[in-house]
Design a binder for these strands. Structure first.
Length: 583
DNA sequence: GCCGTTTTCGGCCCGACTGTTTTCAGTCG
């Protein structure tokens, strides 16, 4: 078992002990143990072999025994027994906002409820309001929490969350009491989906800011409101948290609440190794009494990094995936910016399942001042999407040539096709015809349930097809909607490298596929990408922005992204497979 | 359950907010 797996079990033990009403300090010992284990620098194997696990602060005899047993055998009797002694329905009640172990224990012992369903019934029968420590409000809140637990628990696509987040930030910045304001959290790190929104504000007069925040039009429920902290929930179930801090604290709070947790742990370790203590309150010498009196100054977030001998880490990279090491040595490559995009591939028109014509899409691309854009309508196997057969594709190719020759648009149109990869790995259209186009995006749209080895063989075969220019949406995932199909991404990346094939970064906010976690490594090996909006209407061209943020999270520079290149450079790249594009 | 002694027990912690209290316990990040 790995450190992380063992830490998860220690956390679960803490939760179960809490539900059993154990000594709170014992519970904390387990949670602390889990956190210590997660952030342990030494290898667990070494510590156990040398018998020095007990030297680690926070690990006494009981924890050492349990960690060693889990490490060596993968099971722990104490844990299994504990799990058996608590009904699973009770554990799931922890998901309801406002309910913790203590209240659940009261509900269980006095009303005998052992599941969310039974609790819901107890609320309907007004049995909860009469309990000691509960009241009408608690009962209503529990009932509401049960009713909405699906929406409350769910995550929200970054793209959708932004529609809510941006007006809030603008509103905050417009208030005269606000000195500084920013979003924080996973939203600021541009994660593909977020659990909630965080806002940090600097002000010495928080009252009116709090009032404004909870009184916003779209707010459905105010879940907390105090002097410096408030939480609201919107119709979609998305929650937003606001924290107001003094200006002096702003950058520390912003850094802290931007996270990620893993990044913060590494930052605090870095600080400690320099005799400093870092928190949301400030950065002070370890021995100093309070942050308020002894914190160093940070006029910007960059100052915090600089005080720890680090280069500034862009929020997108703060995932605890090597950014501290890089910031402590050479720093980062210059990450791609949205403004670097000069055109896009993989778009649809009314010829297949798009909503706008070739001409309308071209006009929109031109309005965005793109040098070029590419048409890649579906091929005939995508019958549901009105995919093109050979004849219709040839007609479209003719029309594109006419338009390019006419001078009607300054934006150049590349002719392409999003060609289905059939279940056996062959392409849906004739190779000779595909070679007449400027490029081909090969994508899987059927037989998603193939085994990993079949799917991998299928995609690799398509990559090896000389007609393939780029691979579309590698895993077929739809974020929060549909799982990825099984495929060995490493083999696919290697095949793409070996066959001069680009792997797209599909910028549709539901896809963002291939995933950002895979890009740093792939790009280091030399893999190129194209950030493709997969547009089915002009407004979908905006998706490239989401794609650029995903690319930044993958440490990508403009060099790795072919659609940051000029028209001439793109033609040169495409001509490696299509000689007719060479000048 | 851990830690550190005034060394084998007694203290341990983090602040803000809510709801049910009437001075505070429970939840949450």
């Amino acid at each position: 078992m790995t450190k992380r797996e063992i830490a998860d079990i220690l956390n679960e033990i803490a939760m179960l002990l809490e539900l059993k009403g154990e000594n709170p300090f014992k519970i904390r010992a387990y949670s602390n143990g889990a956190r210590t284990l997660e952030t342990l620098e030494e290898s667990l194997d070494d510590l156990i072999r040398e018998g020095t696990l007990g030297d680690v602060q926070g690990f006494g005899k009981a924890l050492v025994d349990k960690i060693e047993t889990l490490y060596q055998t993968g099971t722990l009797e104490f844990y299994e027994n504990l799990k058996d002694s608590v009904e699973p329905g009770i554990v799931s009640m922890l998901e309801i906002p406002g309910l913790g172990a203590k209240k659940i224990k009261i509900l269980h012992e006095t009303l005998g409820v052992s599941s969310i369903e039974e609790l819901q019934k107890a609320c309907e029968e007004e049995k909860v309001a009469g309990l000691k420590g509960f009241g009408k409000k608690s009962q209503d809140k529990i009932a509401e929490g049960i009713k909405n637990r699906e929406a409350y628990g769910k995550r929200h696509l970054w793209w959708r969350a932004r529609e809510v987040a941006e007006p809030i930030l603008e509103g905050l910045l417009a208030l005269p009491e606000v000195e500084k304001a920013s979003h924080a959290g996973s939203f600021r790190r541009k994660r593909e989906h977020v659990g909630d929104l965080d806002f940090i504000v600097a002000s010495s007069r928080p009252e009116r800011i709090m009032e404004w925040f909870v009184a916003q039009d779209q707010v459905r429920e105010v879940t907390a409101k105090g002097e410096t902290k408030a939480s609201v929930r919107f119709e979609s179930g998305l929650q937003a948290d606001l924290r107001v801090v003094p200006l002096k604290q702003f950058n520390f709070a912003l850094h802290h609440f931007t996270g990620s947790k893993d990044h913060n742990v590494l930052m605090r370790q870095r600080a400690l190794s320099r005799g400093l203590s870092l928190s949301e309150w400030g950065l002070k010498p370890v021995e100093a009494e309070s942050f308020e009196e002894s914190s160093l100054d940070a006029k910007s977030e960059a100052d915090i990094f600089n005080l720890l001998d680090l280069k500034f880490v862009p929020p997108e990279l703060r995932e605890g995936r090597g950014e501290i090491e890089a910031a402590g040595s050479d720093g980062f490559p210059e990450l791609i910016e949205p403004s670097a995009i000069k055109g896009v591939f993989h778009n649809h028109t009314t010829a297949s399942d798009g909503r706008s014509s070739l001409e309308e899409m071209t006009a929109s691309a031109q309005a965005l001042r793109w040098e070029y854009w590419g048409v890649a309508d579906h091929s005939k196997a995508s019958f549901q999407a009105n995919g093109l057969d050979e004849d219709r594709l040839l007609q479209q190719l003719e029309r594109i040539r006419e338009l390019n020759a006419s001078g009607e648009f300054t934006t150049y149109i590349f002719s392409g096709n999003e060609c289905d990869i059939l279940p056996d790995g062959s392409l849906d259209l004739d190779e000779e015809l595909l070679m007449k186009l400027d490029y081909v995006v090969s994508s899987v749209h059927s037989s998603f349930s193939q085994s990993e080895s079949e799917m991998t063989r299928r995609i690799v075969k398509a990559i090896e097809n000389p007609a393939t220019t780029m691979l579309g949406h590698l895993t077929g995932r739809l974020l929060l909607r549909r799982e990825a199909y099984q495929v060995d991404t490493q083999k696919v990346v290697d095949a793409a490298l070996a066959n001069d094939v680009v792997i797209e970064l599909n910028a549709n906010p539901y896809r963002l596929d291939m995933d950002w976690r895979l890009w740093r490594n792939a790009a280091e090996k030399g893999l190129l990408t194209s950030i493709n909006p997969d547009a089915h209407a002009p407004e979908h061209f905006e998706f490239v922005e989401a794609g650029v943020y995903a690319a930044r999270k993958g440490w990508l520079t403009a060099e790795s992204v072919i659609n940051t290149r000029s028209l001439q450079e793109v033609k040169a790249i495409l001509s490696r497979k299509r000689p007719h594009l060479a000048d």
